[in-house]
Amino acid sequence: MNDQIDAATPALDPALDKVLTACKEKLPPPTAWAAFPGYPDSLALAVLDAIWSVGIRYTTTQGVVSRYTTHRRLVGGDAAHDTLTDLLALYDRLGGTNSFATTVGTSNRVSTQPGATLKSEAVHQAATTLHRLGIDTATQFRQAQGTDLGTQAETAWRAVPGQRSGISWRYLRMLLGIPDVKPDRMVKRFIATALGTDEQQLPTGQALRLVQAAAAHHGVEPHALDHEIWKYQTTAAGAHKQDTQAEHLTALAHAFIGRAFLILQEQHVLPVSRFQPFVQVGHHYQGSDLMNQPEFRELESALEDAYPERFSEPLTRANPEFANSYIFSFLEAAIAQCAYDSGTFEADSAPVAKSAAEL
């Protein structure tokens, strides 16, 4: 991990100044930055989160972690302290990677390439590899960093399908309390905007070093700044500045579906049959269960802002329209599309993307 930088390096001063200005203008003061949440005592949850979260919306990963935690609780386990032995044992108990994907995980793959490895398989490979190296607990993982064993672990991790870039490895370290930065699209977008350059043209290494240098300037750990950037980029404040309105609405729509699908699965509304794919608010599920969710409220507010001619002051109109009715229609259309397509209900699936585009 030889990516450290001297915050006072002259060649980087102009760029660093721009990043520090962006931090001052867009983020809370460093004294208000929250501690980075992770899994300091659970290597199992850290591996799950690190691999599942790459390339998909985090609400999907939260659902996986929640279901895993529930399964462990049902057998008297405590996911917050799980080892890789515990994780691999659950795979065995459920019948392998495919069963894990359908019962605990999702059908997401490590990339969009045809035939790409399921994330459930990548997690199993990564956990098996680390376990065979003698790393089973969070403490053992931290103790290995900076040693030959740590180097072997990183090499083995990056050999797992979809993990070559090292983004998930750095995120794994962060989740286990080791100072690092996850140079994903959120971080790169923030840094690129600060520098006034195109996100696609910004070298990952430069983004990484600038976050580390800015963190050093403020006297905080790099993962603390990384987390604040992530929070900014995943809220309306950041999204409106970076994406087109349509892109922002699409992101909010996917986030809402991720939360809604999880709630409806817990209530046994989902899955539905492809022969009876239609559900209706007030009949099959209660609208209030979803309207109280922050993802619903944020999408509703964004729709009202985007289409004031349709939704502003509805009670003064002869034929009032309400954004929430469109949201429920969108949800029900997405459920039907998923049922027709594959019978799997995932927020980042093609059927949901089609419904979001129609919205």
Rank of each mutant, 00 (worst) to 15 (best):
L195K: 06
H240V: 10
H240K: 13
L195V: 08
A253K: 02
A207S: 09
P203S: 07
A253E: 03
L202A: 07
A216Q: 10
T235F: 03
G238H: 02
I263W: 05
R209S: 03
H217L: 06
E247Y: 10
Q233H: 14
A260P: 01
F261V: 01
I257A: 07
A253C: 08
T244Q: 06
A215R: 00
A214Q: 00
E199R: 12
F256P: 01
H240E: 13
T244A: 07
E228N: 12
D243W: 06
Q242F: 09
H240T: 10
A237F: 14
A237M: 14
L252V: 06
H217T: 05
H248W: 12
A213D: 00
E199T: 14
I263P: 01
F256L: 11
L195C: 11
Q242L: 13
L210H: 00
I257Y: 04
G196R: 10
A224C: 13
L195Y: 08
G238F: 05
P203M: 08
A260D: 05
L202M: 11
H223T: 05
W230G: 01
D243A: 15
G219K: 01
I229G: 00
E247N: 11
A216F: 07
Q233N: 15
R209A: 04
T234E: 12
G205E: 11
A237T: 12
Q200C: 14
G196D: 11
A216I: 03
H223C: 09
L202I: 09
Y232I: 06
Q245L: 15
T244Y: 08
Q200H: 15
P203H: 10
G258N: 02
K241Q: 15
L252R: 07
K241G: 15
H218Y: 13
R209I: 07
T250V: 10
A194W: 01
T244C: 08
H248V: 04
L262I: 07
L195T: 05
I257C: 07
V211T: 02
L252A: 12
T235M: 06
A213V: 02
F261S: 01
L225D: 03
L262E: 12
A216Y: 04
V211W: 03
W230K: 01
T234S: 13
H223I: 07
